[in-house]
Amino acid sequence: MSFGAEFEQRVDALVAKYPEPKAAMLMVLWEVQKDKGWIDPESEAWVAERLGTSPAQVHGVVSFYTMYKQKPMGRHHIQVCTTLSCMLRGSDELMDHLKGKLGIGEGEVTPDGKFSLCRVECLGSCGTAPMFQLNDEYHENLTLESVDRLLDGLD
């Protein structure tokens, strides 16, 4: 498999920042996920070859960090913080509302592939709870109404 010349250049630039190629692992995996949407076994093998390590080593890394997706998720990936500060400000009600609205449970994707929903641990947004991360963006001080407005407006 090949990612193309432009991708290779990005990887080269990342590897050059570190004393050892393997140190670029997390950053290279981010690039893979950005291009593919998730990290498949083929890509793990490619990264292993490129950084001079084994596919098992790469898979060990991918499966350790929660943000690497080991399967395709929805186009709009919702990660609800449910740790203590958010819980005190209503994250359980928020989660229940989202499950009902989207018709899916935690870790699931809607049949049309539009939404996926996950419960995550503290996102460092405790002063603006409750909140969730929608793809890369934080959405804070949420109410059930503001969530409806936000999600109903997405394509």
């Binding site: 997390l26 060990g60 995550v120 503290c122």
Partner: peptide, 26 residues
Amino acid sequence: VVHRGAGAYICGEETALMTSLEGERG
């Protein structure tokens, strides 16, 4: 150099942070 983690509380522990920076499980 800015290095991005990938979701693991333990990597805030200083020795885990080093292991993670080396491209390993934290």
